[in-house]
Design a protein around this nucleic acid. Structure first.
Lengths: 109, 109
DNA sequence: CTCCGATACCTAAATAACTTATATATCACG
DNA sequence: CGTGATATATAAGTTATTTAGGTATCGGAG
């Protein structure tokens, strides 16, 4: 099944913000979605997930609200704030910048 | 001059190993090379550089030797070991795997 | 000749993000 | 009624980094 290998440090905020930019979701669903989209390459464990969500909420980038899931269970739904959208754009361009730079190094002759 | 923004956490070992796979270099020169190749996007500070070099040497992935630089100064030259070359390949494929996964998330509809 | 900026090495304290482990509770299913 | 999936959460420990120091040599300007 290939080892989990998890995350690239510092990208979790970006992954969460991007996921929420599609539509509001609760924590568990965010993690599931990221794993699904990446074909299980990225594993978002609870110990990383919940602190990250609280971090982002404290920054004012996301906001939460208890609602019912499709399956009728209580869950904390998070949605992107306007500031969060701006932050997402920042983190996206930062990621492009840095990951391209890594690419330059690993492809250097 | 655009903010430094430095590194993606966990990629420094890869950057160093790759740089040394071209040719042996001393620490200072490794840092300079990475900055140069990335057009100053990646900044390798000394506080990150030297501990990383010691880490890699302890793992047996690089080996060191005092020699003279082109400008006639003593410096510790590092070169890749066979194990280091294997490790480089591992880290390269790991990077591809993970950074592609991030790409999937940030490009998801 | 002396001072300064660049080269070259190094370490320590603090911070941040993550991993691992644990805890709780509900729901669906057999 | 017990188990596995859903759902949230925190605590302890690890690790890589940032920030801030410290040492020393060399070349060139003044």
């Amino acid at each position: 099944m290939s080892k989990p290998s998890d995350l690239i440090q510092g990208t979790l905020d970006l992954l969460i913000l991007k996921t929420l930019s599609i539509e509001p979701k609760h924590g568990w669903a965010i993690a599931k979605r990221i794993q699904q989209v990446t074909e299980e390459v990225l594993q978002v464990t609870q110990g990383a997930l919940y602190p990250a969500l609280h971090r982002l909420e404290q920054q004012g980038w996301i906001r939460s609200e208890w609602r019912l899931t499709e399956t009728g269970r209580e869950a904390k739904f998070y949605s992107l704030t306007r500031a969060g959208d701006a932050q997402l754009k920042k983190e996206l361009s930062q990621w492009e910048r840095l990951s391209n730079a890594v690419g330059l190094v690993i492809r250097m002759a």
